[in-house]
Amino acid sequence: MSGATEEAGSEILRVEGLTMRFGGLLAVDAVDFAVQRGSITALIGPNGAGKTTVFNCITGFYRPTGGRIRLRRADGSVAELQRLKDHSIARAGVARTFQNIRLFAGMTVLENLLIAQHLKLQKATGFGIGAMLGLSGYKAAEAEAIAKAVDWLRATNLLDRADDAAGALPYGAQRRLEIARAMCTGPALLCLDEPAAGLNPRESDDLAKLLAAIRDGTATASAPTSVLLIEHDMGIVMRISDQVVVLDHGRKIAEGPPATVRSDRHVIAAYLGEEEEA
């Protein structure tokens, strides 16, 4: 596919000419791609291809040297992500997880999910003073937030661990909790950085099902959410992605449905090395 021929309204994220330069190193060189609404898009490439850099630009952890990143929300409003600070990007509707899990280890699983709903809860407190005196509608807001958290705990099969410290969970459960936490922010686009890293085959299977359910909006009562993921596990990528973007040396070398990308000459060359030219 090519983004230009698609109807603009069906795109949730459009990256145009994204360039990131660290001193003399050109990590990402004029990359264009789009994420369709209600799809799972995978960003793949060999080590050092610039996947995480693209990711950090989209989620605001880096400010790109050049290019535009536009997020089109469900109500039609457009956010120019390259201009926003990281916490404003999260507010604009982009949630992310981290390659090396970043949970609030000493806080309980439930507390982790409530912090994800901080903005909504904070608004309900009336600058903290109302809730302090127990006057405002904060109790109702908190009950609602807990209900949402419980929904996601059920969807990620963590409900019986709700009062345990997040750091005490097994590795696979921490991965799922991080996804649940990202989803509790109510994002339009969920960005996952290697969600299957370190999972066993069964956990990977469950993860694939969870991501499909998030895309379709069947995981909980929340709306369907588009997913952008970086992944090294090709089994998962090929099984669940609707669209695959391949990067190598900071450039996009292929884009399309998994079947097409798999047989692409450039992709095979990037992963397996090029045949020597005669």
């Binding site: 916490h87 981290f98 949970l103 609030f104 280890a105 000493g106 507390e111 901080h118 922010t185």
Partner: peptide, 17 residues
């Protein structure tokens, strides 16, 4: 809770808005 989250992991806090 946000204070405690800040103590635990500042970067994760930023990612949560």
């Amino acid at each position: 809770r946000a204070w405690e989250a800040l103590r635990e992991d500042e970067i994760a806090c930023r990612a949560l808005g």
